[in-house]
Design a protein around this nucleic acid. Structure first.
Length: 287
DNA sequence: GAGAGTGTTGTAAC
DNA sequence: GGTTACAACACTCT
């Protein structure tokens, strides 16, 4: 479920909580979640976390005095981190309600990191698409190279963006979801950014005007920055399966709003399938 | 209770 | 090479 704003929120929380902690032990409940690495315990035991970085939706842990040892973490659709301090209090890597009321590890806990100060970090992942895996410096370089620039980066270049779009014949939605082109947008925020920019998801990328590209560029950055500011809204939707309450529904203008009236023009929001994904747009003001 | 749908992405196939 | 379709998996909703 997480997109860049959620991953960034989690990263900031982890940065505060686990940097400086030394790994005492690693418990693996599901081998696939560590990429079938059978000795992740031995590789990480005694290592002290020095930083938590991020590229796109991929988190990168580095360790003190280790140039060639990293831990990559990808949440994919359902991954979550939960940090437990000495008192057993849960500090959610997203939302405390999921595990806060339950003893960790839960049945969805795939990996637990125990630190020497008796705190711990749990990696939960219902669908087992996500992973935490040990990587070399070279693997980290390769991983970083796969990502395009992020719309929230201060030096994101809108004219470069427009030029690149001109070479693509896919629906604009597919282009925006391509992490090697621009990093960080997922299905929800793509729909939201397109609504803000008044561009239909199905429009061919190379048919966008310079003005539309600029609007989209700004919309993508805004939508993500605003979401980071409120701590990653989509987490709430996932946790609160009731769905329609909380600030989540207030925030989203089109995603999941099919059948409702567009807040900008009053026309009906439609849901279609585009780029293989559920796609929402306003039939009135998105051209 | 069966079947479709789900916010990701690497890979295989066209 | 550019694009699309699908698989990986477990759960919820219809």
């Amino acid at each position: 479920m997480p997109e860049l704003p959620e991953v960034e929120t989690v990263r900031m929380q982890l940065q505060r909580k686990v940097v400086g902690k030394t790994v005492a032990d690693v418990e693996v409940f599901h081998a696939k979640s560590v990429d079938n690495n059978s000795n992740i315990e031995d590789q990480l035991r005694g290592k002290t976390i020095s930083d938590v970085d991020r590229i796109g939706k991929l988190m990168i842990f580095s360790f003190v005095d280790e140039d060639d040892l990293f831990l990559l973490a990808h949440l994919k659709m359902t991954g979550q981190f939960f940090y437990i301090d000495k008192t057993g209090k849960t500090i959610g890597g997203g939302h405390s309600a999921t595990a806060g009321d339950t003893e960790l590890p839960t049945k969805h806990t795939r990996v637990t990191f125990h630190f020497t100060d008796r705190t711990s970090l749990h990696f939960n992942d219902m669908r087992i698409f996500g992973y935490v895996k040990v990587a070399t410096a070279n693997e980290v370089r390769t991983a970083r190279a796969r990502f395009g620039p992020e719309p929230i980066s201060p030096d994101f270049d809108c004219s470069w963006f427009h030029k690149k779009l001109n070479k693509r014949k896919t629906p604009i939605k597919a282009a925006l979801l391509d992490q090697t082109f621009i990093a960080g947008l997922g299905n929800i925020y793509v729909d939201e950014a397109l609504w803000r920019a008044k561009v239909r998801p199905t429009r061919r990328s190379d048919k966008l005007t310079k003005k539309e590209a600029a609007a989209l560029c700004a919309a993508a950055g805004d939508v993500m920055n605003e979401s980071i500011a409120v701590g990653g809204t989509t987490f709430q939707h996932f946790v609160d399966t009731g769905g329609a309450n909380g600030n989540f529904s207030d925030y989203l203008k089109v995603f999941g709003q099919q059948g409702k009236a567009c807040e900008r023009c009053g026309k009906i929001i439609k849901k279609i399938r585009c780029a293989g994904r559920g796609t929402h747009y306003c039939t009135g003001c998105q051209k």
